[in-house]
Design a protein around this nucleic acid. Structure first.
Length: 318
DNA sequence: AAGGCTATCAACCGCTTTTAT
DNA sequence: GATAAAAGCGGTTGATAGCCT
């Protein structure tokens, strides 16, 4: 057994991904679906290990990813889910379909953990924590029930919001009215993800932008899907490699995926299992999972962290 | 202006779990 | 059932942007 090597270390590129690499990867996934990652470096010419390719797709390029500031609601969800599930980032991410586990983990480590630390240092929280150790079993059980109820309520709220936004599992990638011409993806498509990355990349490399605009007859105000630069210019990389073909096909692919979300999410994307396993807003799946957790070994383990001293009528953490 | 410090986040590492043969 | 490979996952690192002195 043992851990298989990610790839031969010799010649494998590490570090940040370039737009060219992103486009090559997306073009490959378009062609073959997000599976068989081992074949990706060989078939695309990418000098990346398969694992790196999978991660890049999962965390940045796959459709459905939202970037940027976390909303208050998302923040609240993360805090409550973290309290309930611990550092199970993948599980937490399953309740926030637009966010990746990596994103949530980073956000927790850089923002929320500090915020909570601050809060927990206040008198109110501290005294609350102290009291936890001197309450009766009945009080503690009621408090636990309240906490669970609060967490469940938060999940319900979140799912209700999804429902209002017509985001059932079958409509994950499009608005409900997908028959109309203006059916737009709710979440960012791969093309949008790449456009965003390109924007950031170009912004950070002014020479590139300058040279491209001067070489092109187009007026180039910005770079991205909505820019006035041609796709050809847009798709050319820093190294001058012509990537227009994959880029064009990339957009063709996205339109297809948008207009036929079921086909994309169910048939051509085996690795989007995580997307498919997002909570069904119309069902009770997620809460069942939580309930299962509370009843299974993990939940029991959590509860067993505490013991009740009948003699002193005190609850204490083991 | 320069250097140091901090915050952020993309990417990697390595372990565990799942799947395929 | 045993084994190898792939995928999943959480922790950690490193680059860098921004702030402060």
């Amino acid at each position: 057994m043992g851990r298989p090597p990610c790839s031969d270390k010799v010649g494998v590129k590490k570090g940040p991904w370039s737009p060219e690499e992103d486009i090559m990867l997306v073009a490959y996934v378009q062609e073959n679906g997000p599976a068989n990652w081992r074949a990706v470096p060989a078939n695309t010419g990418l000098r990346r290990c398969s694992k790196s390719c999978r991660l890049r797709w999962t965390n940045y390029l796959r459709p459905g990813i939202k970037r940027g500031t976390f909303t208050d609601h998302e923040e609240k969800m993360i805090i409550q889910l973290q309290a309930l599930l611990g550092n199970k980032w993948a599980a937490i991410a399953s309740y926030l379909p637009e966010r990746t586990d990596n994103d949530i983990k980073n956000y927790w480590n850089t923002h929320l953990k500090k915020q909570l630390k601050k809060l927990s240092s206040t008198d109110e929280i501290s005294s609350s924590n102290r009291n936890l150790h001197s309450i009766s079993r009945g009080q503690w059980e009621r408090r636990l029930q309240t906490d669970i109820h609060t967490a469940k309520q938060a999940l319900h709220d979140a799912l209700s919001i999804n429902e209002e936004n017509c985001c059932s599992s079958s409509e994950f990638f499009t608005n409900s009215n997908s028959n109309t011409d203006d059916a737009t993806p709710i979440y960012a498509s791969s093309a949008e993800n790449i456009a965003r990355l390109l924007k950031e990349w170009v912004k950070n490399t002014p020479k590139y932008e300058e040279s491209k605009c001067s070489n092109s007859s187009n007026t180039c105000n910005n770079v991205g899907v909505e820019s006035s630069c041609s796709g050809e210019v847009l798709a050319e990389g820093k190294t001058g490699v012509d990537l227009s073909e994959p880029f064009e096909s990339l957009f063709g692919f996205e339109y297809q995926s948008s207009s036929n979300s079921d086909h994309f999410s169910r048939s051509t994307s085996p690795s989007l299992v995580r997307v498919e396993t997002k909570p069904d807003p119309n069902g009770l799946g997620p809460l069942s999972v939580l309930e299962e957790w509370l009843l299974d070994d993990q939940g029991k383990d959590y509860l067993e962290k505490f013991s009740f001293d009948d003699g002193n009528r005190k609850l204490f953490e083991i």
